[in-house]
Simulated scan of single mutants.
Amino acid sequence: MTKALEEPRRGAVDGGALPPGALGTLVAELQSVGLRVEVPIETRRGGAGPSDSGMLWIDGVPVTVPTEGARAAESPYVLRAEDDSDGIYRDGVRLATASRTKRPRYYDLQTADGVPYWKIALLHLDSLASTVVQTCAYWGNADQCKFCGIEVSLASGRTIVRKTPQQLAEVAVAAKELDSAVDATLTTGSSNAPDRGARYVARCGNAIKEAAALPVEVQFEPPRDLSVLDEVRDLGIDAVGIHVETFDPAVLAHVAPAKARTGIDYYFRTWERAVEVFGRGKVSTYVILGMGEDPDLIVRGCRRAIDIGVYPFVVPLRPVAGSLLEDAAPPTGEYAERIYRRVVPYLVARGLDARGAGAGCARCQACSAMNLFKTLQIGSRPPDAEGTA
């Protein structure tokens, strides 16, 4: 246990909330080693997204942490019921207050043709999320992304292969009215079409905006014709996620061969155009830690992205059962925190804030601890472009 966690324990026992840095350290460790649960908890099982994870608020902060599988079962951390809420404990010592999410009420509804709403879109804490096309051109061949489980959900019968704009609009209205959803995040399996599926996922996002008036982020690979980005904007989409996954080219070639052929430089060209179209902070990319990357390449890539107005959403690897990395170990919380502490000061210095995203994973932040280190950096000296903040 690090000193950063030992000290807040005393305050937590006395009923005080963890300070932001200590809470960040705790969340980073929980997202590495998982959380045992002694109480029922709403989870996201299998497939794409925060897989096999429980969804909760820790000291009021939205968090997803692994709660399924052997690793979570052996975690030294446990979620335990208390009189008015829950607590997170280690070795019998209370570390933080936690609140569980309830099963969304809209999950009990279905479409006129009998499709349960939860097969169309799930509620990730307060964000409606859906993979609108649950197949991928890379799945089951040499191009399959090793960290991905997009077709695992489909094979298990937990979703349908293609959601229509009408279905998504219907579910979004119910999720907003019954469960207070605040935005929608839509992704899609990769397509061989020149637009890489961007037009269809944007049409789905437009239907949600028209019906439910929710902010929407859509996620897709870089289209071959960058004018597609203008079409996506013209459909009213608020933000886009265009995910490179890692800035280490050797790792990218190993874990996502098709993305490697697209090339990191083309991702930057796409992001530059996307920032022109959507604005600074409205474009994001996932950056996954724990796949064997050179951390200096990750930090330099994140800072380069920040310089052009792209929000790098840095997350630890969440091994997905059924994926090619299902047996991989996530990075340690200490390693993830070191990267957060080198990237977050640069975000602050360049004026990028998660709240500016408006919608999507960067807005939600639950799958990363990076935003919990932000308040420690305000007012600090801007880091050098190549330094270790």
Score class of each variant (00 low, 15 high):
151 E>R: 04
314 V>C: 05
31 Q>E: 12
193 A>Y: 13
211 A>K: 15
21 G>I: 07
20 P>E: 13
102 K>C: 03
58 I>Q: 08
36 R>F: 11
169 A>C: 08
214 L>E: 00
365 Q>R: 14
94 R>S: 12
132 V>G: 01
237 I>N: 01
122 L>I: 14
63 V>A: 09
25 T>A: 15
156 S>M: 14
248 D>Q: 03
51 S>G: 03
46 G>Y: 07
372 L>Y: 04
144 Q>I: 01
51 S>P: 01
200 Y>G: 00
78 V>C: 12
52 D>E: 12
85 S>I: 06
196 R>C: 03
315 V>C: 06
16 G>C: 06
149 G>V: 01
77 Y>C: 14
268 F>M: 09
25 T>P: 01
154 L>S: 08
7 E>C: 08
368 S>V: 08
146 K>Q: 14
128 L>E: 09
348 V>F: 06
180 S>E: 15
239 A>C: 02
224 R>P: 00
88 I>N: 03
108 D>P: 05
186 L>V: 04
244 V>F: 06
153 S>I: 09
325 L>H: 01
358 G>N: 07
73 A>H: 09
310 V>W: 02
26 L>S: 03
18 L>H: 04
379 G>E: 00
27 V>N: 05
128 L>N: 09
139 W>H: 07
133 V>E: 13
380 S>T: 14
189 G>L: 09
3 K>G: 05
9 R>A: 15
301 G>V: 01
145 C>F: 03
225 D>P: 08
201 V>T: 06
185 T>R: 09
133 V>M: 09
222 P>Q: 05
299 V>A: 08
160 I>R: 02
305 A>E: 11
